[in-house]
Amino acid sequence: MVKEIERAGIPVVHICTVTPISQTVGANRIVPAIAIPHPLGDPSLPLEEEKAVRRRIMNAALKALSTEISEQTVFDVD
């Protein structure tokens, strides 16, 4: 899906846990997630901390969308 959205002309960031698959398949902007069953959350944390983790990943996603790239890039989550 990610490639078709990009092909249609919309910049897209792929948030996923298994970034190697995303790279093999050909996503361009990639942000690593926590785990497969809970990419944007961490059930082991209290709610407030879990939301902070989600915020950090989403911040990275916004940064990825705002960054010019020329090749596949995996962005760090601060």
Binding site: T17, V18, T19, P20, P32, I34, A35, I36, P37
Partner: peptide, 9 residues
Amino acid sequence: NENVYLADK
């Protein structure tokens, strides 16, 4: 194993 965290993989 085949875990759900990248670091585990």
